[in-house]
Structures are given as structure tokens and as C-alpha cells.
Design a protein around this nucleic acid. Structure first.
Lengths: 139, 139
DNA sequence: ATTGAATTGTTATGTTATTACATCCAAGTT
DNA sequence: AACTTGGATGTAATAACATAACAATTCAAT
């Protein structure tokens, strides 16, 4: 049996620091905001952050939100047989909070379109902008 | 009856120049690439481009591709009763060409999710990355 | 110990987007 | 005509996001 946190153990110091920071955040964080937060831990240049982010995205630990140039930890864990489907994000333009969701019907329709059009999809970005329930209520 | 090109007539000179440039392009164009192309027409600063782009996006004439920071003309025209649904984009990472598509099932699923979660969506971005049919063939 | 691959550190630079403020111009008013 | 008002534009400076190039270090496997 693999150790329970094998995925984490594969991470380097910088990657762990960035991931931990993102997991503790309540909303997406930009690369430069991460840099500032991690200066006490020795970070000094953007590349240290960007390199860690690239790796974490590749490993599936975090997502990049393309429409706001920010990053957030993946909503679910990384247990053994975890199916990594197409993820969607609902971004509140008022409070900044983001909800991650998965919808197999959407995933299926995208696959269908790709198949019909000979497109080989490698990754996807689905991002909604608007107001979350809390902000609609307090509007 | 409105004149056939009423929408176009509402555009200012700068907006028309930017829109025409995008309509003539075979792939998305970045703001700074537009600036360079329009220097002969008198453009000198990024804001001239960004202001025109903002307006054109708001009017539904063009789309911003969030994952590549580039813009493209809307695939369909702007006739009278044109339903502007949720648009998706398949971006070829090899040749740069983009296919715009619309899928009412996806739109419906997104609306459904929003309703169930009290999220008021104002806009959406759906972008696929991979290889288009032509590039897969010539790989 | 040596080597080779991956990671890291550092500097500089490139790319994308906005802020702030001055100016211009056309439409409506006195 | 002079005045006001609002949108559109021009201009300069800067902010925010991201990568290139290269040197130095770490560390597992020999």
C-alpha cells in the first residue's frame, strides 16, 4: 500500500509551501500575492512561485482560473482512484469566492463535440462570472 | 425599419477599425498585436485598443478568449432577433485556429447548476485546448 | 566520490492591462 | 454665438502578470 500522503511527499519544499498557502485561502490567489505571502519563507522572485504553480497544476493539485489569473486548490482530495473530470468554476465578482463544480453531462457534450469535429482536447476551462447566492441576497 | 447595418453605424471610428481587423483575421489577435496593426491608422497607445475591445465585447461583436488573452470576431452576424447563447471555443495549440461552437445542452446544464446554487451568472467562458483535426492529421 | 538530472536562485526582460488626467468634439440650451 | 454637458479620444506613466537565460545547488544512483 502506498502511504496515504504519497502525492504530498512527492512535492518539493517550494511546491508544498505554495500548495499549503492555496489550501488555506478562502478565495483564489494570484501568483504575485503568493509571492508576497511567502517572502517570510524565503521566496524572492516570481519564478519560484510560477514554477511551483506549473507543477501543482500538472499534478492536478490546483486549478488556474484563466479569467482572473489566479489559482486555487482543487476542491476535492487526491485519493487513490480519483476521477479527474472536467471542472467548472463559478466566480463571484462581488466577494471573490469561487465554487468548483463537476457536471458529467457537460463533460459528455464537450467530448461529443470534440469527437464530431476531430478535435483532440487536452484540457478545458469552464468559468462562470456573476454573483454568488450570498451576494445576491445582500445586494 | 432599421437600416441593415445599424449596429455598425453605432460604432466609433476606433471601434470599427478594431472590429474590421478582427473580422479579417483567421485566428485570435492580442490587444498589442492589434495596436501594431493599427498604427498606420493612427493608433498610438494600448488604451485606444482596450477601450474599443471593451465596447465590442459588451456589444457582443467579439469574444475574449481568456486562456490566451486574445480576441476574435463573433462567428455569427448580428441580425435582428439573434439569440446570443453561451459560446464555447476549441483552441488549437498547434496552429492557433479557434472554432466557436454553441451547445444548448451545456447552456442548460450551466443554468441548472446556477439555479440550484443561487448563483446569478452574467457571463461565461468555455475554452478547450488541444489539437484541431488538421493538426492531428499532420502530426 | 562522481555523475547526471531535477530543482532552485537571480537578474533581467517581455507581455498584458489599467489609472489618471488632459483634450476634443458634437448636441442641446440660453 | 457662448455655454454646458457627456461621450469619446489622446497621452504618459505605471501596475499586474509571466517568461528567458544562466548560474548554483541538491540529491539519488552509481
Amino acid at each position: 500500500m502506498a502511504s496515504p500522503d504519497q502525492a504530498d511527499k512527492a512535492l518539493t519544499r517550494n511546491q508544498s509551501l505554495v500548495l499549503t498557502e492555496l489550501q488555506g485561502a478562502r478565495a483564489p490567489v494570484t501568483a504575485y500575492a503568493l509571492l508576497d505571502k511567502l517572502r517570510p519563507q524565503g521566496f524572492r522572485a516570481p519564478l519560484q512561485v510560477y514554477r511551483a504553480l506549473d507543477r501543482l497544476v500538472a499534478l492536478g493539485h490546483i486549478h488556474k482560473l484563466e479569467s482572473i489569473n489566479a489559482f486555487m486548490a482543487c476542491a476535492h482530495g487526491h485519493g487513490e482512484g480519483h476521477h479527474h473530470g472536467v471542472a467548472g468554476f463559478a466566480i463571484c465578482d462581488d466577494c471573490g469566492q469561487v465554487s468548483e463544480f463537476a457536471d458529467s453531462a457537460i463533460e459528455h457534450r464537450l467530448e461529443e463535440w470534440a469527437k464530431c469535429n476531430g478535435f483532440h482536447a487536452k484540457k478545458s476551462a469552464i468559468e462562470l462570472h456573476g454573483q454568488c447566492a450570498a451576494c445576491v441576497g445582500s445586494a
